[in-house]
Design a protein around this nucleic acid. Structure first.
Length: 490
RNA sequence: GCGGAAGUAGCUCAUUUGGUAGAGCGGUAGCCUUCCAAGCUUCAGGUGGCCGGUUCGAGCCCGGUCUUCCGCUCCA
């Protein structure tokens, strides 16, 4: 990352705070690490992105319905999903190189070395010991295992290790007002992903909405991860919002649906007229425990290419796990005729294709892509600059600014009339203070795509000046056409 | 969490070896103004991140602490 790109990212963060998009959480108490609040314009923009996604999923696809599941879920959910076992990694630091390792990765690397040296038995014994110690959560024993096997840091080459510490990425809290005899009995977790709320409701949704495979369930909502370190502004937060869709398909068709959603989701991004050259796919080679195929949609942020969205082929892992842990059948009866047998496909646990996008990341994507410090050459040849957010009109926080040129001669009254006729349909902003140029710049800074100005000519022929954010061009149109023009753009 | 850097008004920064904090921009209220940050006036806003130490005296020196940024790690 270059210093210049670094600066741009800093400027975007400053701009976001100064113009009421994003504030650090609890800022008067020095903030809370990796937690942020959305301000007046930020909450509008975030809501608009969420609605744009929701509409594209549940309204434009006939076979996708939405749900809104609770953040709290039965603790066994996380046992079944694998989060309790796989979401807490013991870590160890080398004091000399300051490099941090996952303990299992470190020991496995040593085992690989032993295998290459032909010491198969030692390799096996080492892994066996590690598994036992991990299962027992015996961190002292694991550290001793590392020391006994003379495992060193690849950077410093020393065995100067810290103690092993557990980082559980799920937030815990207590459920119910009365303390239980066994404290473990009333522990609940804040969900680390929204997907499980969809899986456990699979049959409820399928039956009540009378869905036939293939179909999808969409959901937006908060998720929580106690990250070891969370930084880079709203890119990695401890509390964040996901927009997820789980698409249930007949086993054997998952590859084609994976391909379909991979393309479909990129097209969604491009439908906001975001630059195609800043997007790329990143196919996963090393897969998560549940995944069959997986890729990320990455976007080139000022801090480099980063993941915005993931598309995963999850097989029937999640539903099978829930069937096993809940002892409730998670099957679907497929009445369609299988041409190979001439009979219905029958009962099966569906396969799942997941699309999962971070709303906060999408917000940051929009902001990074929109932000521009533009140099302007004026008519008299002098130069000027403006900060403008080229936010797509469909999701801009404010759609239209209504500005009387002067705050007298009846101009504000006409402007108020226009405001009253537009504000039931979209978000407007009214201002009569300061010079017109200054008001335009303020609207540029929050990304308002249209400004209209009411002047004396309006009183004569009912026309107004409309000024476009991106081109700064302006033209006269009848005041009666303003609402329609904005509605067509959003 | 570990290592590096930084913290003075909303923002950008001053305060030249320690002597009780200032400017520009922005904001606010008003005057004036017929289209891209114009001008004049008014007002608001800081116990110098916080705590402690040295000193007659600390924004400045020392220690601790908190927060932010960068790297390691993880992921949406």
């Amino acid at each position: 990352m270059s210093t210049q790109q670094d600066n741009i990212f800093q400027q975007i963060i400053s701009h976001a705070k100064e113009y009421g998009f994003v504030f650090p959480s609890s800022e008067i108490y020095d903030g809370l690490s990796a937690v942020y609040d959305y301000g007046p314009y930020g909450s509008e923009l975030k809501k608009n992105i969420r609605e744009y996604w929701w509409k594209s999923m549940t309204q434009l696809h006939d076979n996708i319905v939405g749900i809104d599941a609770a953040i709290f879920m039965h603790p066994t959910t996380w046992k079944a999903s694998g989060h309790i076992d796989n979401f807490s990694d013991p870590m160890i630091d080398n004091k000399d190189s300051k490099k941090r390792y996952r303990v299992d990765h470190l020991i496995e690397a040593k085992a690989d070395t032993l295998a290459q040296e032909g010491k198969k038995e030692e390799e096996f014994a080492l892994l066996q010991k590690m598994d036992n110690l991990l299962a027992a959560e015996d961190f002292d024993g694991l550290k001793q295992l590392i020391l006994d096997n003379n495992i060193t840091c690849s950077v410093s080459g020393t065995a100067n290790w810290t103690d092993i510490r557990q980082f559980n990425l799920m937030f815990k809290t207590e459920f119910g007002a009365v303390a239980a005899d066994n404290p473990d009995d009333n522990i609940v977790y804040l969900r680390p992903e929204t997907a499980q709320g969809i899986f456990v409701n699979f049959l409820n949704v399928q039956k009540t909405a009378r869905m036939k495979i293939p179909f999808g369930i969409a959901q937006t909502g908060k998720a929580f991860r106690n990250e070891i370190v969370a930084r880079q502004f709203i890119f990695r937060m401890r509390e964040f919002e996901q927009m997820e869709m789980q698409f249930f398909v007949r086993p054997g068709t998952e590859a084609e649906w994976y391909k379909f959603w991979k393309e479909e989701r990129l097209n969604w991004h491009l439908s906001l007229r975001l630059p195609k050259e800043k997007y790329r796919y990143h196919d996963h080679i090393k897969l998560a425990h549940y995944a069959k195929e997986a890729c990320d949609i990455e976007f080139e942020f000022p801090i480099g290419f980063k993941e915005v969205e993931g598309i995963h082929s999850r097989s029937n892992f999640d539903l099978s796990q829930h069937q096993q842990y809940s002892r409730k059948k998670q099957q679907y009866f497929d009445n369609d005729i299988n041409p190979a047998t001439g009979k219905p496909y029958g009962n099966y646990i569906p396969y799942v294709i997941e699309t999962s996008i971070g709303l906060d990341r999408m917000f940051l994507l929009i902001l990074s892509n929109a932000y521009e410090e533009e140099k302007i050459t004026k008519e008299d040849g002098s130069t000027d600059s403006r900060v403008v957010l080229h936010i797509p009109a469909k999701i801009a926080p404010v759609k239209l600014a209504i500005l009387p040129l002067l705050k007298k001669d009846g101009l504000p009254e006409i402007a108020q009339e226009l405001l009253a006729s537009c504000k039931p349909y979209f978000k407007c902003f009214y201002e009569e203070k300061d010079a017109i140029g200054k008001r335009y710049r303020r609207q540029d800074a929050i990304g308002t795509p249209f400004c209209v100005t009411i002047d004396h000519q309006t009183k004569e022929d009912n026309t107004v000046t409309i000024r476009y954010r991106d081109s700064m061009q302006q033209e006269r149109i009848p005041i009666s056409k303003v609402k329609q023009l904005v509605l067509e753009a959003i």
